[in-house]
Every structure is written in C-alpha cells, then in structure tokens.
Design a protein around this nucleic acid. Sequence first.
DNA 1: GCCAGGATGTTA
DNA 2: AACATCCTGGCG
Length: 188
Amino acid sequence: MSRLRARFFERDPVTCARELIGCRLVWHGCVGRIVETEAYDAADDPACHTWVRPSARAFVASHQAGDAYVYLSFGNHWLFNILVKGPTAAGFVLLRALEPVAGHDLMRERRGAAVKDARLAAGPGCLGRALGMDRAAHGLGFLGREDCGIFQGEGVGICAGPRIGISLATELPWRFGDPGSASLSRRF
DNA sequence: GCCAGGATGTTA
DNA sequence: AACATCCTGGCG
C-alpha cells in the first residue's frame, strides 16, 4: 500500500476530495477508510473559511500542502481538514467520515461504548472525537510521520452531492463519498 | 422516522 | 452574530 505524499495535495481541492475516497487514514493507533469528504476552495468559495477569515488566509500562505487544518466548530467539535495548495488552486478537504479499520477500542473509549462500530466516525465531529483530535493537531504536517499518514486504497464507486451544514454556495456538488458505506454521515 | 432546539467557544 | 455539528426529546 503506497503512502500519499504532499504532492498529492498540490492540486485543486475538488480533485483531492474525490480521490481521497477509499484511501486509508492512519492516526495514532487508529485506522479508518475515508468514505466521505468535502472540498472548500480558497479562491472563490463563499463557504470556505478563507472567504471571511484572515487567519485562514494566513494559514494557507504559511503552511504546506498536506498539513492539517483543525478547528473547533460550534464549541464542541474538532473538524479535521487537509490543506490543498498547488500552482493554480488552494483550499481544504474536510474529512467527514471514516469506516473504522483498526483501533476500535480507542475510538469507542472516546465516543462511548454504546456507539456501533460503523458509526464511530460517521460525521466530521464524530470523526474528530473518535481520533482524539484537538488544537494540538492544527498545522501539523502529519503525512510523513511514523504513526500517521494516508495510504492509497482500492478503487470504489464514488458519488457526489451538495455539501452539508452550510448556508452559502449550497449548489456546488462538492461532497464526495462511497455510496455503499454504512459509515456515511448521511445518505447521498 | 422526522424535525426543532440547545450546548458551546472562537472568530470577526 | 454567525458557525463546515451532534444529540435529545417530542410527536406521529
């Protein structure tokens, strides 16, 4: 299985978001198959943080492709994005859902014993919680770390639809997923 | 099953 | 004031 390098993220966010479906995320003892992502474009996407946040624009300028962009949403949910930054485009890919592959015990500890395995990281907030995400991960170049990374997966059917939970640019079909997965945050 | 509402902290 | 969310409870 081949490890994704920063080069993978030196392309436009929509392409990256789509091609991440089916890949495996390794994160400090947890492994999950990426089954849902969203793309956010730094150039002209009103839903992207760069649209209204100088701090997000500064992040893009001062970090490298593949670095983690992590922030707190609604006061309790750490959302895990990956910086995409190439010659002609920049933005973020939000990781929205994983199918647990390994580290179930760790994830269950953080999410609660009652949560079904398939639902441990089924949603961006749940994913952050399951992985133990917090501000310490923000800005981290994790692709090359021993205990972290993303690895190529087998090809799967990928579908697209409108992004979830936003109020601007809702017409863009920039949510991607494996429609057969039981770990989607919502059905397509 | 579906929907409305509240918790909660950071940014601007 | 808004927000890239989640869980609960009320109602069919």
